[in-house]
Design a protein around this nucleic acid. Sequence first.
DNA 1: CATTGACCTTCCCTTTACGGGAAGGTTTAG
DNA 2: CTAAACCTTCCCGTAAAGGGAAGGTCAATG
Lengths: 130, 130
Amino acid sequence: MNIGEVAKLSDVNSKSIRRYEELGIMPKAGRTMAGYRQYSMNDVHILRFVKRARELGFSMKDIKQLVSLWKNKSRPSSQVKSIAKKHVDELEKKLEEIQSMLSTLNKLVKNCHGDGRPDCPILDDLGHGE
Amino acid sequence: MNIGEVAKLSDVNSKSIRRYEELGIMPKAGRTMAGYRQYSMNDVHILRFVKRARELGFSMKDIKQLVSLWKNKSRPSSQVKSIAKKHVDELEKKLEEIQSMLSTLNKLVKNCHGDGRPDCPILDDLGHGE
DNA sequence: CATTGACCTTCCCTTTACGGGAAGGTTTAG
DNA sequence: CTAAACCTTCCCGTAAAGGGAAGGTCAATG
């Protein structure tokens, strides 16, 4: 299979596939005489794995480790779990940050007339009362 | 004031201050004969405004508009509100994405033994059952 | 056989907001 | 005079992707 075919089957952009190869997440693809990358269904499976991990927000660095653990049939699940837990912690931190921003912003937006008049609690807050 | 002084007073990094000038968020600073940027307390106020807006997650593009509206004493508050509402919408979208990731991840992590054994629901999910 | 269009290759640029660090000039204090 | 602590600009790196250029390859068509 050429890269376009595998891109379709995995729903991963060709550009990303080449990038994953550079990052060492995908094995280096074999080449035809003309230099075209060649793939098999096994590569499609890896790419789907990567795609799913991206959807769960894992970094490419984490994904590289996860793919390697996935391939290693004698991995300890503790290693997988620790990567996932670290990621969960980071997501929870982000979540709190966003919730805190939203809590402030929603109050400000609610109190802003949003009409032709210049007075605006949003700007007042940002200018912390000048 | 030199840039270091204003950086201390506003709690904004010197590098960022120069960057904000490039982006047109800060007015171009006057210079001493030696080329050092010169600032006044007014600049400190602007920088605090920017910092607060960053803390609320606004993009630099939004912040540029917000600073300009803030300076314009005859702005319509509707413009400010619309920027803020768009930002709230984006944050809420991100929030939902993260919540959805966390919901999946937490289930998977909970069901993973996390010991020396290789079987792992996290990898099973990512490999969607291979 | 030549051409056309769809594919592939590599390379560089852009995004976001920031920071590290180099190389070099200025100011201030001892 | 010199050393420390400033300041300047310039380039690079971050994360993950995508745009687009310039050029090579392949298959089908006239």
